[in-house]
């Protein structure tokens, strides 16, 4: 095992809803080795100093999307952020910004999940196909049109980064729009028009002020800002065409 002589100070934003009126910071001195993540640091605190410290985690390999936190003010996955990069300074760990805190580092994600549900995140087939007919054929171009937007792990770091979501919690936000775009761009799907209504709605893309911070913090290079941008253009076009043809319809 690695040497564990070094001690780092971890400052954690604590909030126990049953006893605290508001969140406050607490500092812990944690022995660490170079291969220890911030997540392992908080686990160490829970195992050794205070069993009531609460946070979400599971996979430890940056794929389940559970462990997002503000680390020195920047939204990051704590399992792939390393203590060595902060030492010898103190590192501050807080619940993700813009979400209501439930307890310590756990935030309320029900709003986000509702947004995912609202965009109809499933294939609504353009053409029915039976299982006997085998798979749909997708050319490399068709595949590349959407594949990047499938990598979202729903970690919501982009929401913690988005100033507009901070102002308007109803904004459907970067990840949900990226997922919407993923289905719209999939050659197997035929429901883009249906989804465009949401894009252009009050909760839709026009909330975005093009800061682009969401794409910067995204750990999976989904580039949600790009998805939002493309949809702004699409929605504007859509609006324009609707205006021209009274029957509606975007094509």
């Amino acid at each position: 095992m690695s040497d564990t002589k070094k001690i780092i100070e971890i400052e954690v934003l604590r909030y126990q809803p049953e006893s605290d009126t508001e969140p406050h910071l607490e500092v812990y001195k944690v022995p660490f080795s170079d291969d220890m993540s911030v997540l392992q640091g908080v686990q160490y605190i829970k195992d050794n100093f205070d069993g009531s410290l609460t946070f979400r985690w599971s996979c430890r390999m940056a794929i389940c999307g559970s462990c997002g936190m503000m680390i020195n003010g920047i939204p990051k996955l704590s399992c792939e952020t390393f203590l060595r990069d902060y030492y010898p300074n103190r590192v501050r760990v807080e619940a993700m910004a813009h979400f209501p805190i439930e307890k310590d580092l756990v935030v309320d994600l029900s709003g986000f999940i509702g947004k995912l549900e609202s965009i109809q995140p499933y294939i609504i087939p353009r053409e029915a196909r039976s299982l006997e007919q085998g798979e749909y054929i997708q050319s490399p171009e068709q595949f590349n049109a959407y594949i990047q937007f499938t990598s979202c792990i729903n970690c919501t770091l982009c929401y913690a980064a988005c100033p507009q979501f901070g102002l308007n919690p109803d904004f459907i936000g970067p990840a949900a729009i990226a997922l919407l775009h993923r289905y719209n761009m999939d050659s197997r799907d035929g429901a883009a028009e249906q989804r465009m209504e949401l894009v252009a709605s009050e909760e839709g893309v026009f909330n975005c002020s093009a800061v682009g911070y969401c794409s910067e913090v995204c750990p999976k290079h989904v580039d949600p800002a790009n998805a939002v941008n493309i949809n702004k253009t699409n929605a504007a076009k859509d609006y324009f065409l609707r205006f021209l043809s009274p029957k509606g319809g975007s094509k």
Partner: peptide, 22 residues
Amino acid sequence: PVELTQLEHWGCPWSRTADGHV
């Protein structure tokens, strides 16, 4: 194979060959 095809119909982005098959 039936179930894996079903998943493809539901949108799973299986990697493909140049001719578009899984």
